[in-house]
């Protein structure tokens, strides 16, 4: 299953998620996080995309996963945050 979402982060930027997931078990197969936000270091977003693959399309697990990636890679978002990222991803769920 492939789907996309567009989410305006409150007081932030426009987040666009392109998602491929397995509808039988709700496991994320492939994700692309795009938009006009800022993230430092920029290259960490590609690692974040790889790390999210295999995660269950479910709020708590996604939030945990994303927080852990942010901590490990010392990612600093501007115009985006972990909660909004999860919101954008969950909006792709059909």
């Amino acid at each position: 299953m492939r789907s996309q979402s567009i989410y305006k982060v409150p007081q932030g930027k426009l987040l666009k998620i392109s998602l491929e997931y397995n509808q039988d078990n709700n496991v994320i197969k492939n994700i692309r996080i795009t938009g006009d936000f800022f993230a430092y270091p920029e290259e960490a977003i590609e690692r974040m995309e790889r790390e999210i693959n295999g995660t269950l399309l479910e709020k708590k697990q996604l939030l945990e996963k994303i927080h852990s990636i942010i901590n490990v890679d010392h990612i600093h978002f501007i115009g985006l945050d972990a909660e909004s990222l999860v919101q954008g991803i969950l909006m792709c769920k059909q």
Binding site: K16, S18, R32, I33, T34, G35, D36, F37, A39, E42, I45
Partner: peptide, 9 residues
Amino acid sequence: IGYFQSLTD
């Protein structure tokens, strides 16, 4: 375009 944007989008 910004680093995180999709060119074709």
